[in-house]
């Protein structure tokens, strides 16, 4: 039942597992936190956009005769192209969801968009169930897999890819938000929508861009999770979305750096609990830490980036 295993010899190995899982959570958490930051909506459909990303990648890969290609460079380029395509398509879907379901409700009582988000989530889940069926769908393992051994620690290209891709996305996002004009518009809109509008910022398009970027990151996460686990399932987004949302809250919802930190913290806690105690305790640990953090730091680890009230 509750026994502590000696997990010291595998500490680094488990850390790698945790960082890979955390990278996925962080990528999804970014979408939650960006949307919340700008319109204070918990976009429950976001987890399903992540699953949609893996389904879209799967369909694109199905069009490519992968078995006939053996050149690793070409395969790598194909992977890159599929990531970009999946990100674009998910981004567009995110924008459509915002346009069709949320925009009209932007000034409605908070409950209305929240329930709408749950509705959109169910719509997406049911569409995916009809599309690919309700059992695990296998994801082609087309990239050559190499194992690396450093000391007693071994890891493969797949986990390396998850970590690298998520870090690259986060660096790009950070650059975008803090060093571009559109990023500045986003931060301004998040701080005070009305004032931003008065300053000549197109609030509607800024919010649409926020949805685009958040959903595109979920699309990337969808592709790399498919590559990492080798399968995908129409309900995966529910569980992953819940964890990623927790990560966003843990880091301080609305805070981009917080979401990344939260993602890695949740991934590592979950893996370490599974590795050192038992799988059954991993969720208990994740949510216990969330509650404890919120008790002592109600606005999350790094704090919310809320409009500064003077």
């Amino acid at each position: 039942m509750f026994e502590i295993h000696n997990c010291a010899p595998q500490f680094i190995q488990q850390l790698i597992n945790g960082v890979a899982l955390g990278g996925l959570y962080a990528l999804i958490a970014l979408g939650y936190t960006m949307v919340y930051g700008i319109i204070e909506l918990i976009n429950f459909a976001h987890g399903d956009v992540y699953t949609l990303g893996s389904f879209i990648s799967l369909s694109i890969l199905g069009l490519i005769p992968l078995a006939t290609i053996s050149n690793p460079t070409v395969l790598g380029l194909i992977a890159l192209a599929v990531i970009i395509l999946a990100a674009l398509l998910c981004g567009i879907i995110g924008v459509l969801i915002e346009r069709l379901a949320y925009r009209r409700l932007r000034n409605a009582p908070r409950l209305a968009p929240l329930i709408t988000a749950i509705g959109v989530s169910l719509i997406l889940e049911n569409i995916m169930q009809i599309w690919k069926g309700n059992s695990e769908v296998s994801f082609p393992q087309f990239l050559p897999d190499h194992w690396h051994q450093i000391g007693g620690v071994r890891f493969d290209d797949r986990s390396l890819m998850v970590v690298v891709v998520s870090l690259v996305c986060m660096i790009l996002l950070n650059f975008f938000v803090f060093h571009t004009k559109l990023g500045k518009a986003m931060r301004a809109t998040a701080q005070d929508r009305d004032a931003a509008q008065l300053m000549g910022i197109n609030v509607n398009s800024t919010i649409a861009w926020t949805f685009f970027i958040g959903s595109a990151l979920a699309g990337v996460a969808g592709f790399i999770s498919g590559m990492y686990y080798g399968t995908t399932f129409f309900l995966n987004g529910y569980q992953a979305g819940l964890k990623a949302f927790t990560a966003a809250v843990l880091g301080g919802i609305g805070n981009i750096t917080g979401a990344m930190l939260g993602g890695f913290v949740i991934g590592i806690i979950e893996t370490m609990t599974s590795g050192c105690i038992s799988d059954q305790w991993s969720e208990v640990a994740v949510f216990a830490i969330l509650i404890l953090t919120l008790v002592f730091r109600p606005s999350g680890l790094l704090g919310q980036q809320l409009p500064e009230k003077v």
Partner: peptide
């Protein structure tokens, strides 16, 4: 669950 890496590493 989908990720059993932690358990299997143990």
């Amino acid at each position: 669950q989908q990720d059993f890496h932690a358990l299997l590493t143990r």
